[in-house]
Simulated assay, not measured.
Amino acid sequence: PPAGAPVLAGYLDGTPVGAVAFDDGRESERGCGWIPLLAVAEPWRRRGYGVQLIGQAVMHYRPMGRDRLRLPTPETEAAAGFYREFGFSPAADGPAWEKFIGYDPEFLGT
Rank of each mutant, 00 (worst) to 15 (best):
V17R: 11
T15C: 08
A9F: 10
M64C: 05
E29W: 08
P90M: 07
P2E: 09
P95A: 15
L69T: 04
Y11Q: 00
E42F: 12
A39N: 05
G33R: 05
L108F: 15
E98L: 12
D104S: 09
T73P: 06
G31R: 09
G14V: 06
D24E: 11
P72Y: 11
R46W: 02
Y49M: 04
V20W: 01
T73Y: 13
D13S: 09
G33L: 07
L12K: 15
F82S: 05
G65N: 10
A57Q: 06
L69E: 01
F86L: 00
W34Q: 03
V51S: 12
A79G: 12
Y49H: 15
P63N: 02
R30A: 10
V20C: 06
F22G: 00
R46V: 14
D13E: 15
R46Y: 11
V17S: 11
Q52K: 13
G102K: 07
G87F: 10
P74W: 10
M59L: 14
P2T: 15
E75S: 15
F88Q: 03
K99T: 04
Y61W: 07
L69W: 12
G102P: 07
L71K: 05
A41H: 12
P105F: 07
W44S: 11
P36H: 06
R84V: 09
G14N: 09
T15I: 13
W97Q: 00
A78C: 04
P16L: 11
M64W: 00
G81I: 03
R66K: 11
A92F: 11
I35M: 12
I101K: 06
D13I: 01
A3H: 08
G109H: 10
D23R: 02
P1N: 10
L53D: 03
P72T: 09
G10S: 10
P90N: 05
W44I: 10
G55D: 12
D23K: 00
R84M: 08
L8I: 00
E85M: 13
R45F: 08
A78T: 13
E85N: 12
F100Y: 15
G18Q: 10
S89K: 12
Y11S: 01
A78P: 06
D104K: 06
Y11R: 07
P36K: 04
G4D: 10
R46S: 11
A91Y: 07
Y49D: 12
M59Q: 13
Q56T: 08
W34F: 14
L53K: 11
L108R: 11
P2D: 13
W34L: 06
H60L: 08
G25S: 05
F22I: 08
G50I: 05
Y49L: 09
G48F: 07
V58D: 06
P2W: 02
R26I: 03
V58L: 01
A5W: 04
H60W: 13
G18P: 04
I35N: 03
E77Q: 13
G31S: 10
R47S: 03
P1W: 09
P95E: 14
A92P: 05
R68I: 00
G109P: 01
W34C: 08
R84I: 04
D13V: 00
A9Q: 12
D24V: 08
A21P: 03
D24Q: 02
W34A: 10
R30K: 15
E77V: 14
I35A: 02
R84Y: 01
Y11I: 01
Q52Y: 00
Y61V: 03
Y83F: 14
Y83E: 04
P74R: 07
R30V: 01
Y61S: 06
G18H: 00
F22L: 01
G87N: 03
A79Q: 08
E29N: 14
R62H: 08
